[in-house]
Amino acid sequence: MQPDDLTRVLAPKLGENLLGVEAFEGMAGRVRFRREAALDLFRAVRDDLSFAHLSMVGGIDWVDHREVFYVAWSDSARQYVLLSTDVPATDAHVETASAVWPSANWHERETWELVDITFDHHPDLRHLLTPDGYAFHPLLRSFKIHEPEELEVKTRHV
């Protein structure tokens, strides 16, 4: 599968919300999209392009904005595809993918707590790796590991 194939299927579905499809070494391509069309894109990628297996969700802090990326695998094409969208740092949220791919659940929890990107309508947005009540987002560039931090951990009572 080539980037052109991706464009041919996705462009009619997403319209102007598809910002472009680039070539990516070792992958079917890198799809850039606007976050408003997230759910449409996920459905199209899963159902029309048969990328049934979501492998990874991650976030990157580019200081002025943040990027969310998704990696999905297709068994029929034997290829990965990379989907990415930019969100402003002041209003970092995007629609959850866990309604389309249940496997996104934990990946999004992790991205939420580490990169501070909120996933709307996520079924279970709790802390996963950091303790409950941890107020920091370690993977932001503003979080310096050389500086001491004041850590306040609430104990969870079950």
Binding site: M56, I60, V71, S103, W106
Partner: peptide, 21 residues
Amino acid sequence: YVVNEGTEHPYRVKFRSPIFA
């Protein structure tokens, strides 16, 4: 997933652990 921004350190490294999933 490794992002190289032209310095000696990776800008961002993201790992996907199979057992995590």
